[in-house]
């Protein structure tokens, strides 16, 4: 038996939450994988070939290659967001899984950390699937693309933490539409997923540099096209700061909600 009360126990406690989610996922992996990778690939091929015909090359590469890194970044974000909103809310309010966990030595902090680690993991799985298909299709330039996987983990943890914060404030599933429509969608459109930011006014570009997804795309794109990201530290630091801040906020809000 692992002594859960020691500091090493803290990791074991998070891990038992992670393990529970991983086991559920492995049972339903078919439909889950379909959602996290079939849909983005439809977008990639439809837009990449369809629009690509008119666009030609962007930043010195074919549009579909440009788009592939954007789609991979968005999709890793979406995977964690969906998990942190709908699935986490279901575990909290419908299945009462967290209530069950709270009757064991696990605390809210352990649950939130375990959930976020799982969201990071799920984003890696999603990135891996897309990377595989894009590589087989010849849109990936070099093995540096494998560095996308740890970035996907960071993406998952970052957007998972934000999503859990939204979930902590939600009274029903309907509330998620505000976050998705007013935050996620504009961020996707402005973060250089579909088109380079050079086409935007400077004011907007300055604002965009505060968004975590922008920094993810700035790292993923060069890595998938044989280059190396400029200003790597900044691009890592911004999502890390978002992740840690929202992780703390989510823990605080969920303590308030679950331990009233």
């Amino acid at each position: 038996m692992i002594d859960l009360l020691t500091p090493q126990g803290a990791f074991s406690r998070c891990f038992s939450v992670w393990l529970r989610n991983a086991k559920v996922w492995s049972k339903l992996a078919g439909s889950s994988l379909l959602g996290s990778f079939a849909e983005p690939l439809f977008y990639l091929f439809a837009l990449g070939y369809g629009l690509g015909q008119f666009i030609g090359s962007v930043e010195g590469m074919s549009y579909i290659v440009f788009l592939a890194s954007g789609i991979l970044s968005t999709s890793t974000m979406n995977t964690a967001t969906f998990e942190g909103l709908y699935l986490a809310y279901t575990r909290m309010e419908v299945q009462r899984t967290w209530d069950g966990m709270l009757s064991t030595p696990l605390g809210v902090t352990d649950i939130v950390r375990g959930e976020v680690l799982w969201m990071g993991t799920k984003s890696v799985i999603s990135a891996l699937a897309i990377l595989l298909v894009t590589t087989l299709s010849g849109f990936v330039e070099s093995t540096t693309a494998l560095w996308v996987l740890p970035i996907a983990f960071l993406t998952g943890c970052c957007f998972g933490s934000i999503a859990l914060t939204v979930t902590a404030l939600s009274r029903s599933y309907d509330f998620f539409m505000y976050y998705l429509s007013l935050v996620v969608t504009p961020m996707v459109l402005l973060s250089g997923v579909f088109f380079p930011l050079t086409s935007l006014p400077e004011v907007v570009r300055d604002g965009v540099s505060a968004l975590p997804l922008f920094h993810i795309v700035e790292m993923v794109r060069p890595l998938m096209t044989g280059g190396f990201p400029d200003n790597l530290l900044i691009h890592i630091a911004v999502p890390v700061i978002y992740c840690l801040s929202f992780l703390s906020i989510a823990i605080l809000l969920l303590k308030k909600r679950l331990l009233k």
């Binding site: 692992i2 126990g9 939450v17 299945q95 899984t97 209530d99 064991t104 030595p105 696990l106």
Partner: peptide, 27 residues
């Protein structure tokens, strides 16, 4: 034993017992 059942619907009966035991740190 809570008032509202919170068994894991995605797990079988013995898997429910197993994953709950994991939360206590048992191998």
């Amino acid at each position: 034993v809570p008032q509202i059942d919170n068994l894991d619907p995605d797990f079988s009966v013995s898997e429910n017992l197993y994953s709950y035991g994991r939360y206590f740190g048992y191998s």
